[in-house]
Design a protein around this nucleic acid. Structure first.
Lengths: 177, 177, 177, 177
DNA sequence: CATGAATGAGTTTTCATTCAT
DNA sequence: GATGAATGAAAACTCATTCAT
């Protein structure tokens, strides 16, 4: 519902009806309307991001790790497009309510990418002169943007298949020669 | 005010007070509250984006054009950080109200980048095997992301100075060899 | 709880928690929330007032009877300060719910005082020209007021020790002779 | 309406209807429902009590002053019986909201009575052995009680005519001599 | 043109009460 | 008898919008 209408356009009554419960029941599980968003973030989005770390640890060299991360990212967001919408909306807004949560999740992601880039520099597959703190944000931004495009295009094509083209753009830009 | 509090958190009364007029006066210039957002977009954001075209036309080769576009983009958004906040918030949300306007502005931008990339391919400075419709979105997304990072970091550093590092990442990725 | 927060500020859930039972259990012993107040009045406050009669019957002359009544009144309310709070709050409000109970209890008290005053007139210890129906209310009011002062002062001093000073004021008044 | 139904039994909608305005209009003049009570107290009850001082200053000896005070008190409360109900209900409850206001108003009254009693002692019309801090509360309590009885009896008789009998009881007490 | 008081529909939230377990 | 999750009616409050001045 938040994905379709946005948080402020969704009323608690609607949410309750969609959930098949009475209005008051909502308040047995959420402190207030805001808390619905907060709990969504803590129990859904955070989990997804936490799963990225495992995926990366499995892969071998840094390029594979980056590929795994991006693929997993796109796959998860494709699997739950509504979460994707809400996550994006929240990330690019400045909502006090969950500002800290957003920062935390974002940092988690950037740390992973940062480690991959450093490892890549050691391996010799990534450029030594990379401005890492920019490069990692650049990568997250580009993936976010790919997701945003997919959403705005109506979720019609296969988002995960964007992995290779994206990696290609990243690597040939940051790859050593 | 929209930048600080968001659209739904801002009341018409607050807007009127900030503007130094009475509540009713707002309705002499705007059909309703929504219309304030629509008109903002039409007369502020659209103008900015329209100015990009001129900037690009001035420059010489495609790399210079891309550099000019990105620099102008960052400069304008830095100059009016509040507009930047609102623009970003709207872009990554799914507001029916201005969905079309967003698409239009976005298309305007992507068209410019697309032309630059094609020109670059002709000139031999850009890779011939580029998946252009992805690459141009990739570039917009990366610039958006740079702006978003700047906003979330409190607008403290010089955003325009990110131009060269960004271009470097783009070009060495998409440049021909 | 009613003493601390008042009847309307206390929820049935709170009452149940304080009583160490489940919410629903309350409704096995009380018809509804109002009934809690009604039963409190019938089984607690009424008992206390009924006990006054016995106390008075024990004493000898009318002055002693009045002294016994006031002392017992102050002692009982001091013993159960929370009941005192609730009783006072209810007496000076106009709650349909227990209007009749209040009247009954109040009449019970005024009847006792009235009898004492009449006895005193016969004995020659009370003024013959007393406007009895005023005087008895005057006495109840003054005792109530002493209790109210004690409550508002935080129940810190010994309420029962106010008996003598009060009786002195009743009997002799404030005028010099 | 508060006099009739009590504060918690009165809804803002009812208040608005009685006032002949829309619900929202209430909130242009009162911060919230509680504020209605607070403002009532500050602008109505406080004024009444402030007027007592003037009345007392006019009279001559201390007995006259006491008589003037009591008469004015009864007259004002008789004139605005609804205020009387609300004032009494609030005084004998423990509402945090206006606890301080009640204390202030009550102190104002007790101070006046205290001064009168001291003056009476100097004049020789009041007993020298009076426990003044008790005696003044005793007087306020007795007057309050007279008002309360009048209210509960349906405001049918002339409250102000109770002045002389009350003063008589204060001054001479109930004891025969 | 501008004002700002008034409106009332629409929202969030509370909580007495019920009833299947 | 006891439970406590679920209910939904009712209440407080907000705020976009209107319109007489």
């Amino acid at each position: 519902m938040f994905a379709r209408q946005g948080f402020y356009q969704s009323t608690v009554s609607q949410i309750a009806r969609e959930a098949g419960v009475a209005d008051g029941t909502i308040y047995l599980y959420f402190k207030n309307k805001d808390d619905i968003l907060v709990q969504f973030f803590n129990f859904r989005a955070k989990q997804v991001f936490a799963s990225f770390r495992q995926e990366v640890d499995k892969s071998g060299n840094s390029t594979d790790k980056l590929r795994s991360l991006v693929r997993r990212h796109l796959e998860e967001f494709q699997r739950d497009g509504d979460m994707a919408v809400v996550y994006q909306a929240l990330t690019y807004q400045n909502i006090d309510l969950i500002k800290d949560q957003i920062k935390e999740v974002s940092k988690m992601y950037l740390d992973i990418v940062g480690e991959i880039l450093e490892k890549g520099q050691e391996e010799g597959t990534m450029r030594k002169d990379l401005y890492i703190s920019l490069a990692k944000r650049f990568i997250l931004g580009a993936v976010d943007s790919a997701i945003n495009n997919w959403l705005r295009a109506g979720r019609k094509y296969d988002l995960a298949s964007m992995t290779e083209p994206l990696i290609d753009l990243f690597i040939r830009g940051i790859g050593n020669r």
